[in-house]
Design a binder for these strands. Structure first.
Lengths: 394, 394
DNA sequence: ATGGATAAATTCACGGCGTAGATTAAATGC
DNA sequence: GCATTTAATCTACGCCGTGAATTTATCCAT
């Protein structure tokens, strides 16, 4: 479904229209008939009949019993088939690892998360544990009758285009072949195995969390964890840079003293927040949330200061990338009520176009382990882009 | 040639492959044969024969006399037809307005520039002057045998998606219908009339200026004028934001005093540069270039300070948009030898991924009035994307 | 000079695709 | 019970790129 700088043949055209048809069934909030699919996609009814038949045969779309809503021949409602496709989303982060299996409808059909402090861990050991968890989740999905479409791994670091993890500072990993993190049997599947940045994938989950609103959202997603990452979503799609390193907003300069520059993470990273809130080192993040909820002055001041810095960094994002909306995820979602005000104030003060289009600040709607969900969703995306790769037999 | 989220029919496929074929002829540094086009595009020779014949008939491609380079039947070299298509690039800027006509090969076939101080000018008056200049350039192009393909207007300000100029601070214009700036007879043409930001269009000219290097360049272009704008180029294509307001790097925060924030323009805008260099208000910019060339200490210090600030802002761009290369245009191209060092130093110091992919700093290669050229080139782009709109008759 | 080798360009039969319009299927409403 | 209405399907058609065969025009060895 991507724009090819390559010759287009009839089979590409077929694949494109098949993808378009499948998307129409998936994106609809209620079951749709063939006639509705034709109207929404712009394809002729004849073409839709043909395309839907193929999707049904492939087991990606299912027909419900005909319903007569108006007079005339009753329509046959079409729905994405549930629990037949399993897309695996894997994640290794600083304090946990886990795997989530999602089906074509986007529902979680199996998952398992292991909490552990993985700072400075040995990649091979982590790979083995991840492999066990993935095997288990995979087995559960298969027991439900699903076949594996593929998998995507979320990592908290910079990945280059050849799936090498350049650096994951909080894990202490450098220059690691990320493909090698998984056992070979999981690298297969109709749409294969990929690796991506945690913030990018969390943003993908956020796109889906807004689905009921429909439309193609554009926003900048901020992932506040130990470090601060982010991702730009434009028209419902992630827009990464040439190496996939876009959105590293934590390193943006937000101020200076006479002798040094201040970066966002120096003020709003999780460690800086805890320190400025005068909480003991090593205390859990939930202590900060509680302190802020109870109105403890140093905690509130620290969070508001972080909000101002985040607003300054997001103003840079707005000027450089032209955004409508900033979505606060991770720690900033938990602290939203306190942090959002200063962020909004800074944006209104600094962004030149805020008179015409103010930058909205909203709380992330994707649930826990957003990157894991997003990883699985990108597997679905790859399948939807090329429906014909899905093997038609049982 | 854009990726349609719409049904694809055979006529779209045809248009796409026609566009691909035309691009192959245009992008080649030397004349290419049909066989070479087939090899480069991936199309079959049969298809290329058919497609090229249509392009020849449309007057977009011309056959040269056959040449025998190896043994075998001699090949027929194909070249873009010169001086038959005229693409008009128009520009209104702070101290000049002008129009440039470019043909399919990208050569300038006619142009006219009027220097004038347009700060606080009346839009209707400027529109009339621009209309006269455009009429003249148009007439000259037509006299050479060219037909007008369309036109694009470059403006130094924020434009929204419906071609409304929201604000052009240095012209003093606000909320103006930019389409209305042109006389009706110029709004036509096979690919119509559009408006875009001056920095975006200058970046488009920069893409072409690199053509001999081939490949699809990715860089961030900085347009240093009275204000400082910029544009992101990814894989040989401009990537604007949701409103087309991306790249407004002049408003990025680069430091702070205890009481206020410093934006890039406060340090590196043309006025700030002149003031910090201790040159009299109203002196021409060339005085600064001369002072720097002669090594006048306050001028050099001002420019180096601006370079540091620019480096900090470009580090933000690198983190947010993931770039390989920063291209310095406008005032920064004129001051390149002095400004580039501090920019590079700041990038090397601040950009987290500079260990793997250092951000290169280069001087813009597009010539004078880059935005005007770029504006004309986007007209060519629109024609190349839909070659069938070009009327085949004389 | 001449015929084979070689490569470019063209021709043609073919299969695949979406469309438009006709047709069939299955309900409602008077 | 029959016309109406809407969904879904069927059929003829035109267009597209492919691949193999063919034609064209040169080089090269004899």
């Amino acid at each position: 479904m991507a724009p090819p700088v390559a010759p287009v043949r009839q089979d590409w055209m077929r694949e494109h229209n098949l993808s378009l048809t499948l998307s129409a069934v998936l994106d609809a909030s209620e079951p749709v008939s063939r006639a509705q699919v034709a109207a929404r996609t712009g394809l002729s009814r004849a073409a839709v009949t043909n395309l839907v038949d193929r999707l049904v045969e492939a087991g990606l779309v299912r027909e419900l019993a005909p319903v007569a809503l108006q007079r005339g021949r009753p329509s046959v409602p079409l729905v994405p088939v549930a629990r037949t496709v399993a897309a695996l989303g894997l994640e290794v982060n600083v304090d946990y690892l886990g795997v989530r299996a999602v089906d074509l409808t986007g529902e979680v059909i199996a998952e398992q998360v292991l909490h552990a402090d993985l700072r400075g861990s040995e990649p091979a050991v982590v790979a083995a544990r991840l492999g066990r968890v993935a095997g288990e989740v995979r087995a559960r999905a298969v027991a439900l009758g699903a076949r594996i479409a593929g998998s995507t791994l979320a990592l908290p670091g910079l990945l280059d285009s050849s799936s090498v993890l350049r650096t994951a500072p909080n894990l202490g990993w450098r220059d690691l072949d990320a493909i090698g993190l998984l056992p070979a049997e999981l690298v297969g599947g109709a749409v294969g195995f990929t690796v991506a940045n945690e913030a990018d994938l969390a943003a993908r989950a956020e796109i889906r969390a807004r689905r009921p609103d429909d439309g193609k959202p554009s926003f900048f997603y901020v992932s506040g964890e130990i470090g601060i990452g982010g991702a730009r979503v434009l028209g419902g799609a992630l827009s990464a840079g040439s190496h996939g390193w876009a959105g590293e907003v934590g390193h943006v300069v937000v101020g200076s003293s006479p002798t040094s520059l201040t970066r966002l993470e120096d003020v709003a990273g999780q460690r800086a927040l805890m320190r400025n809130a005068q909480l003991p080192e090593g205390a859990p993040f939930s202590d900060l949330v509680e302190a802020v909820t109870q109105g403890a002055p140093p905690a509130v001041a620290a969070v508001r200061q972080a909000g101002r810095a985040l607003g300054i960094a997001l103003a840079a994002v707005a000027h450089i990338s032209d955004i409508d909306e900033a979505v606060l995820g991770g720690t900033f979602a938990a602290l939203f009520d306190t942090v959002a005000g200063p962020v909004e104030a800074a944006l209104a003060e600094l962004v030149v176009f805020s008179d015409w289009v103010p930058v909205a600040v909203t709380r992330a709607r994707a649930g826990d382990y957003a990157a894991m969900t997003g990883a699985a969703l990108t597997v679905i995306d790859r399948l939807v882009a090329r429906p014909s790769v899905w093997p038609t037999a049982s």
